[in-house]
């Protein structure tokens, strides 16, 4: 399904804050690659899973590398939003 949810950068920041501690998430540059700011692939997977859980969205395994910054996560879901199996209606954008 396309375009059901417009995820915002702030919502991705919230997901980062929920799994990676010690960051001033408000100050994170949305365009910088995660690995440059200390978010490794395991953290990235946790962030994506948190988004999946909260918003009923889904990242395909092969698209993991596309979601390598706050802004790119937003772009990814804006361009290719799918609903996870068994998930409820996606939450509206903040």
């Amino acid at each position: 399904m396309h375009g059901e949810t417009q995820l915002t950068v702030d919502q991705v920041r919230d997901a980062v804050a929920s799994v990676v501690h010690g960051f001033d998430v408000a100050a994170l540059d949305a365009e910088r690659p995660f690995f440059e700011i200390g978010i490794d692939s395991l953290d990235q997977a946790q962030v994506l899973m948190a988004i999946e859980e909260r918003f009923g969205l889904r990242v395909a395994d092969g698209d993991f590398e596309l979601c390598d910054s706050l802004a790119n996560v937003v772009r990814y879901f804006a361009s290719r939003t799918t609903t996870a199996p068994g998930k409820a209606t996606p939450a509206p954008a903040a």
């Binding site: 395991l42 997977a45 946790q46 899973m49 889904r58 990242v59 395994d61 993991f64 199996p85």
Partner: peptide, 12 residues
């Protein structure tokens, strides 16, 4: 696991 991404988180 239903995806590698979720599987990695659960392994962790």
């Amino acid at each position: 696991p239903d995806s590698a991404i979720r599987g990695m988180v659960i392994v962790n």
